[in-house]
Amino acid sequence: MASLTASSTLLALVTLATPALAADDVPPSAADDTAAHGLVGLGVASIPDTPGGDDQRTVILPVLNVRFTQVPFYLGNPFGGTPLQAGMALPVGAHWTFGAALSAQANDPREATDAQRAAGVEDIDRAGMGSVFARWAADGFSATLTATRSMGDSDQGKTATLRLQRTFQPNPRLRLTLGPSATWSDGEHMRTWYGVPTGSARYAAYDPAGGLEEIALNLGASIALSPQWIVGSGLQLAQLHGHARDSPLVEDDTPVRMSLFVARRF
């Protein structure tokens, strides 16, 4: 559940973490008596080819943001993170929402270079994830804390991402979002993403511990071309920290992730 983090968030998302598409937070428009409402579409993102790499790669991502009116379930990423997600969100009071989700990363976190493979550093394949989150929202401001754990034998460990966001709507067609995020990761995640095995011919062995992995500034914009069609973009400017930044695999500790999308509202 991170931002087009994004990995994660993202980018995520964040992304994280797959990169966070701005569609994460575009509110659906539909009557209350419909069975489901939301967005469906397609996006393209430019992300680092490896965690900390200085080259970019382009990936195609689905845009999916579906809420059901009669049950508390959702598909996609109305609360951030990968669009390949199914979850439950329970509102509590006027401002709080708590939820849990199962998801799959939308792309492989690392496509190792030939030099990295020769040095014993392997690809990181996409994996299944389980997550829980809590969100507080009021008056155009939201704060979301998401904890994620990899499933199976992916060795991607556990992460926690805090994302703050302010939403502006200068006119009924234009929506802007702005806010910082921070991601903490455990030792297993850091070793998989940034570690170097003993005996590498190119790099010194590196066994990072857990801690703060990344802080980022997230920007998003969406424009309604019509009542049904939306186009938008997302930009994440990040800074690696601590043991992630100190990895010999890191060539650029200020990753940039960008995305564009088109989606249809229903």
Rank of each mutant, 00 (worst) to 15 (best):
A6R: 01
T9Y: 05
L11S: 10
A17T: 13
P27A: 02
A30G: 11
T34W: 15
G38N: 09
A45S: 10
G53E: 14
D55I: 14
Q56N: 15
T58C: 01
L64R: 06
F68P: 00
T69A: 13
P72H: 06
Y74R: 03
F79V: 08
G81T: 10
T82E: 11
A89D: 05
G93P: 03
A94F: 13
L102N: 13
P109G: 03
E111F: 06
A115L: 13
Q116Y: 02
V121M: 00
G130I: 09
V132M: 08
F133R: 12
A134V: 15
R135Q: 08
W136P: 00
A137M: 15
A138F: 10
F141L: 15
S142R: 11
A143C: 14
A147L: 12
G152P: 05
D153T: 06
D155N: 12
Q156C: 08
K158R: 15
R163P: 09
L164K: 05
L164P: 01
Q169T: 12
R173S: 08
L174G: 10
T177D: 05
L178V: 10
P180W: 11
P180T: 06
S181R: 10
A182M: 12
E188V: 06
T192R: 04
G195S: 03
G199K: 09
S200W: 03
R202F: 02
D207T: 12
A209Q: 08
A209T: 08
G211E: 00
L212N: 09
E214M: 08
L219A: 04
S222E: 11
I223L: 15
Q228A: 15
W229C: 08
L235A: 04
S247A: 05
L249I: 01
E251L: 11
D252M: 14
D253Q: 07
P255S: 00
V256F: 05
R257F: 03
S259R: 03
S259V: 05
